[in-house]
Nucleic acid binder design. Structure first.
Length: 486
DNA sequence: ATGTTC
């Protein structure tokens, strides 16, 4: 048997791209890493594998604790982690969702081609940067009072539709149609609401960005046709989350759960795995608050997209409808959701935690929007400023292998601190412009250094593994034209 | 990720 040994953890090769840490000690299930050997080398560089083993100790975890090909260490759970915890006798854990609740990404199409932008990149990037709020702190597309924030938390994209910021098609092309009905705004603290109310429609900082891209490759023509993608077409990618509101929800419930469920926590190998038992008051409250933050993040991305349509209208002097600026799809990659899955021949309701992992439902699944039902759910995997991004579709093995999930991005290979020592923001920006014709504009040079292409894993390899496993299949590749970030 | 340190 082929094994991979690292720091006292041995992984057994189950088959190509599938590695297993056997159940051992207090682990309730085995752990699985879905990666090539090259990616596994990188994954084993930090605490990811130990964290993955730790998550296998959670009550009610089913089948395996999973790590996607882009996995790296996070708070308690790995980023790139999928954990399905039974909704009846298991638990729910804020660390399995992450601080940025419903961090996610959406792709908007256009009928413009790269030639239409030629020579106007600078003008476009300046206009986007001037009009789409970004960076740390406050300032969004809309400023709101408490009634508005409550409505957003309660109704998500339906609020945006009522207020004229969204069309019915925008909702149809969003995971969960942009609404989590299980939201309970009363479980979101005043402090969280206060932090969110002047951040509605804002990118934030870190790895969040808005990017104008061109489609460079199509790998599956029939699926690309169904998605309306073709070579040379311009698309817009928006990557952001629930800002200070989601962060505060995570902090609030970690503290509450640590306090009230210390007995459960004492049995777990890491304090960062704090979890509320299924059926407990805090499990219900956290789920309601998390769903509210999820609704907030969808509205956030919707308002950024709405503003982007306006900017394109001004720059190109045409209506957005005329430019075909339709939402392809919006995926969440930091969420937990009650879903029903087959577990050893039995249908079980599970809290599927996807932290840095994307839902990847296959063709025929009832939750895939009608327009894409025959080809599978679109998956959007952002890469770096220098390597581009991918569109995939849910693969036929995702339900049996990963509770309907795949990777979410390239994954970092160096810390932000290390990146700032390694790179200088202005040099990164100049090189991208002069060598790759990528126009970057950011609030802070440090952010550009932190997000330099060299800090990321090879997104091609991440996507190749997803495709080879049949959990998310390659559909198209894009390359950046303009990028704005905090 | 984050009013960038509980």
């Amino acid at each position: 048997m082929t094994t991979f040994d690292t720091d006292g953890i041995t992984l057994e090769k189950v088959r190509e791209n599938v590695w297993e840490i056997p159940q051992d000690g207090e682990m309730r299930v085995p752990a699985r890493v879905l990666a090539s050997e090259a990616l596994l080398e990188q994954i084993s560089d930090d605490k990811t594998l130990q964290q993955l083993k730790n998550t296998a100790h959670l009550p009610g975890i089913r089948k395996y604790a999973l790590c996607m090909p882009d996995g790296h260490q996070g708070y308690g759970f790995p980023v790139g982690g999928v954990a399905a915890l039974d909704a009846e006798d298991g638990c729910i854990s804020p660390g399995g969702v992450g601080y940025d609740i419903n961090c996610g990404v959406r792709m908007m199409k256009t009928n413009l081609t790269y030639a239409d932008l030629d020579g106007r990149e600078e003008e476009l990037v300046d206009a986007l940067f001037a009009n789409v709020p970004s960076g740390l702190g406050g300032g969004g597309v809309v400023e709101s009072g408490i009634e508005t924030i409550e409505a957003i938390l309660d109704r998500g994209m339906e609020w945006a539709l009522e207020e004229g910021y969204a069309t019915p098609d925008d909702l149809a092309h969003c995971e969960d149609e942009g609404v989590r009905p299980d939201s309970d705004p009363s479980t979101v603290s005043q402090k969280a609401k206060d932090r969110g109310k002047n951040q509605i429609g804002s990118l934030g900082s870190g790895n969040h960005f808005l990017e104008v891209q061109r489609v460079t490759d199509v790998f599956r023509e029939d699926v690309a046709d169904a998605y309306g993608l073709s070579e040379d077409r311009i698309v817009v990618l928006i990557h952001c989350g629930s800002r200070g509101l989601g962060h505060q929800v995570c902090t609030d419930y970690l503290r509450k759960i640590e306090k009230r469920h210390g007995d459960l926590l004492a049995e777990l190998p890491d304090k960062e795995l704090a979890a509320a038992p299924a059926g407990s008051e805090l499990a219900e409250e956290y789920y309601g608050a998390m769903c509210a933050a999820i609704n907030f993040a969808w509205v956030n991305r919707q308002l950024v997209m709405h503003r982007t349509r306006e900017v394109f209208e001004r720059v190109f002097g045409r209506d957005w409808e005329e430019m075909g600026m339709e939402l392809l799809y919006d995926v969440a990659h930091n969420i937990a959701k009650k879903e029903t899955h087959d577990v050893e021949g039995e249908e079980r309701e599970l809290y599927v935690h996807r932290k840095g992992a994307t839902r990847a439902f296959p063709a025929g699944h009832p939750e895939v929007p009608t327009a894409y039902r025959e080809v599978g759910q679109p998956i959007i995997i952002p890469g770096s400023m220098g390597t581009g991004s991918f569109v995939l579709r849910g693969g036929e093995h995702s339900m049996t292998e990963t509770f309907g999930s795949t990777a979410h991005g390239a994954g970092r290979v160096m810390s932000r601190t290390q990146a700032k020592n390694e790179f200088w923001g202005e040099d990164v920006r100049d090189d991208l412009r002069d060598q790759d014709r990528v126009y970057v504009k950011a609030q802070s040079g440090a952010t550009v250094a932190e997000e330099a292409p060299g800090v990321y894993k090879d997104v091609d390899e991440v996507v190749r593994v997803s495709d080879a496993l049949g959990i998310g299949d390659k559909v198209a590749r894009t390359f950046p034209v303009c990028n704005i970030k905090g």
